[in-house]
Amino acid sequence: MRQRAASKTLFALVLGVAMPMAAVATDNKITPDIESVEVMHNGKPVTIQRGHDRDATLPEIFQKTDRGCPPFCVQPMEVVAGVETVGELELLGYLKRMAEGESDLMIIDSRTPDWVMRGTIPGAVNIPWNKINRDSAGTFETPSEADSFHHILEDEFGVDRTADGQGWDFSQAKTLILFCNGIWCGQSSINIHTLVGIGYPVHKLKWYRGGMQDWVSVGLTVVKP
């Protein structure tokens, strides 16, 4: 009996010590092989990693499930034929390549500034969806809106005018990875449709469908302006 009791005590001690130690030693990597990713945001280094608070929850702005459709409709898995839909790991890969010096890549937060102020993905550039979106007739309401769009194409996306000045040359255009708030947000998908409509090559467009809601749901780092 004493031996059995001693065995039970020893077993309990082993459990009592080993289990808490294992819990403390447990970290929260992005994948088993990726601890963090170093990126640049507004010229400053930022480390993207997952949070370590086991009690963390989604930010309140992403807790709603019913937003009303339209405009907040569930988006398809394929936004446009030929445009690749990417996830968090692919997006991190693009961010890493950008941090290593690839200048022909661009991560675009398509949301309006009021949303961006609440946090965005490190390394992303905010170009609000309504700076790119055109109306149903495929035009802009005012000449100033058209000028703004052309400025974005030429100065931000690396698109040139054709020799006759009547069209666009996409041979040096950047590869764009666009996102917005999540699968219920159509802002980035609208922009992709607009860009494809003017001839932007589909292989130079990527879509992070999960957007900010998926990003924060796995505890990845966000930055605020």
Score class of each variant (00 low, 15 high):
86 V>N: 05
84 E>A: 15
119 G>A: 04
103 S>P: 08
36 S>E: 14
94 Y>N: 03
21 M>K: 08
108 I>F: 05
58 L>P: 03
61 I>Y: 08
48 I>A: 01
109 D>N: 15
117 M>G: 14
33 D>Y: 08
63 Q>K: 15
55 D>C: 00
71 P>F: 10
90 E>T: 11
32 P>H: 08
18 A>T: 10
24 V>T: 06
34 I>E: 01
54 R>D: 14
106 M>V: 05
100 E>P: 01
111 R>H: 11
39 V>R: 02
103 S>C: 12
34 I>K: 01
39 V>E: 00
24 V>P: 03
24 V>A: 10
37 V>K: 04
90 E>C: 00
12 A>F: 15
20 P>S: 09
53 D>S: 14
110 S>E: 02
50 R>P: 03
9 T>C: 13
79 V>E: 09
115 W>S: 04
82 G>L: 01
102 E>C: 03
34 I>F: 03
74 V>R: 11
43 G>F: 08
71 P>K: 13
85 T>E: 01
25 A>V: 07
56 A>I: 06
89 L>F: 03
36 S>A: 15
67 R>P: 02
78 E>V: 11
67 R>L: 13
71 P>A: 09
38 E>A: 10
37 V>S: 05
29 K>I: 07
37 V>Q: 03
20 P>N: 09
75 Q>S: 10
53 D>C: 12
28 N>Q: 08
113 P>R: 04
25 A>Q: 13
119 G>K: 04
49 Q>A: 15
29 K>A: 12
109 D>K: 09
67 R>Q: 11
122 P>E: 00
81 A>Q: 13
23 A>H: 08
44 K>Q: 15
115 W>G: 02
42 N>I: 06
44 K>T: 14
86 V>W: 05
88 E>H: 00
92 L>A: 00
114 D>I: 02
85 T>Y: 05
47 T>A: 07
94 Y>T: 00
94 Y>V: 01
64 K>C: 08
101 G>E: 13
41 H>Y: 06
41 H>R: 08
54 R>C: 12
19 M>Q: 07
68 G>H: 12
113 P>D: 08
30 I>H: 03
95 L>S: 01
95 L>E: 00
51 G>M: 11
41 H>I: 03
16 G>F: 09
52 H>K: 14
95 L>D: 00
95 L>I: 02
112 T>M: 12
23 A>R: 09
116 V>G: 01
20 P>W: 06
100 E>H: 11
80 V>M: 12
121 I>D: 01
81 A>S: 15
83 V>G: 05
71 P>N: 12
27 D>G: 11
8 K>Y: 13
108 I>W: 02
